[in-house]
């Protein structure tokens, strides 16, 4: 398993005064927020206001122009320890469409550092139960329904037992049963002490599950996240 973050003097995700521009277009203008273990933070806002950009910065996929991001006191620039505790669930189905759900999950379990076959199976079993995808385990992802594929996508992000889970519109365009299953899974993860940052267009969904909701507008957080230092 990858070397995990051990020093936990600070147990939060801290985003402080983050700026990001794409060429001349300023997307984020001094965003600050923080997240504690066992907390779900909802991020909403109109299209193009920088929600996904902020998520990508927190996921360490791209660097911020200015500002600080740290997780458990580890700065985002220290990729290996920082990334080892992150579970990233992109908006699209980031799985191999030709392989079965099981094969996909076993692969991600292996990448998460589960060395033995038993460990990998156990890791897969755990997320299969969490996302409730038993019925489609042996189906190729391309043949799963939209809702099941999203649940499998979520499961792949959880297989490494992350401490911070980043979700980009995990319930977009799916049926209510799958939406409920996903939201239930997130609630269970919160109970386990995970931090969850979720982008969603549907405010009623965020209200149903999130502890806090922040709205991004014109690259700024509309209502200041008062907990942020």
């Amino acid at each position: 398993m990858n070397k995990r973050v051990t020093a936990q003097a600070d147990d939060r995700l801290v985003v402080r005064d983050v700026w990001k521009a794409y060429r001349r277009e300023q997307v984020l203008r001094g965003v600050s927020l923080q997240l504690r273990p066992g907390e779900i933070l909802g991020l909403c806002g109109a299209n193009g206001v920088g929600k996904t950009t902020l998520l990508n910065l927190i996921a360490s996929i791209m660097p911020a122009d200015r500002g600080e991001i740290s997780l458990f006191g580890v700065p985002v620039s220290q990729h290996r320890p920082y990334r080892s505790v992150i579970g990233y669930v992109p908006q699209n189905i980031a799985l191999s469409p030709r392989l079965s759900v099981r094969r996909n999950l076993l692969f991600w379990a292996a990448l998460a550092g589960n060395r033995t076959r038993v460990q990998r199976r156990q890791a897969v079993q755990r997320v299969v139960e969490l996302a409730r995808i038993h019925d489609v385990l042996d189906k190729p992802v391309s043949r799963c329904s939209g809702g099941m594929a999203r649940r499998a996508n979520l499961a792949a992000g959880l297989v490494g037992q992350p401490r911070l889970i980043l979700l980009d519109e995990p319930t977009a365009g799916i049926d209510s049963e799958s939406r409920d299953a996903i939201l239930d899974s997130l609630a269970r993860l919160r109970e386990q002490g995970c931090m969850i940052l979720m982008i969603n267009h549907y405010e009623h969904e965020l209200e149903r599950i999130c502890d806090r909701i922040v709205t991004l507008s014109d690259g700024r957080i509309l209502e200041a996240d008062l907990d942020a230092d």
Binding site: A59, I61, R83, I86, Y88, I93, A94, W108, L111
Partner: peptide, 17 residues
């Protein structure tokens, strides 16, 4: 293209690939 557009590549990068 599929790897890039679905986010699979980013996920692989985050997994240390």
């Amino acid at each position: 293209r599929q790897e890039k557009e679905s986010g699979l590549h980013v996920r692989l990068t985050l997994a240390g690939i």
